[in-house]
Amino acid sequence: MTDEREITLTINGTEHTLEVEPRRLLVHAIREDLDMTGTHIGCDTGNCGACTILKDGEPIKSCLMFAAQADGAEILTVEGMEDLPEATDLHPLQEGFKAEHGLQCGYCTPGMLMAGKALLDENPDPDEETIRDAISGNLCRCTGYQNIVSSIEYAADELADRTATDGGAVTAEPGGGDGPGADDAEAVCGQSECCGGPDADLFERDYPTEDTDT
């Protein structure tokens, strides 16, 4: 039984059948066998959260589980976010990270998005403390976390706005349209079909430093 064994993983709605050794970690199966490198490996020891995925809706660290143990599971990775029902071009969380500068190097981002997704699925209106708790298993060496918290708040507001205006139906507004932050961006760059992202002027804002802790 050290031999390879056939398993089936449904990742982002697509079924994949693969042969794995019992010692194959889920994260390696996803990244190396299936070539989906959106899920990152930061530490390989369960500490950083970069490898976070949703397994049957729950966030777990895919470096702390063997692939064979996930046989038959439904898995969501960052690659699947833009195809979720609540996504337009991007998922509101991804829009949030873009609009609120929720990333710098981006290494932690896939894990942060997964942790954020798990949180909003369970609690669509989290306060700051709840958000910080939900991302407490995810390390970021760049942002100081403040903007990650704002990014998740952005997504929560965006999803709430949609529910309020159209009962949750998906609107096709590129760049996250009416979420907080987008107004700023539009005011500065003034283009109607703009990405909703930052204009050079926004970089002159005072950003919190890394002293702001999770």
Partner: peptide, 12 residues
């Protein structure tokens, strides 16, 4: 319970 590790580790 909420002080053990982090949410991902607590799920497993």
């Amino acid at each position: 319970a909420p002080l053990v590790a982090d949410p991902q580790v607590r799920n497993r």
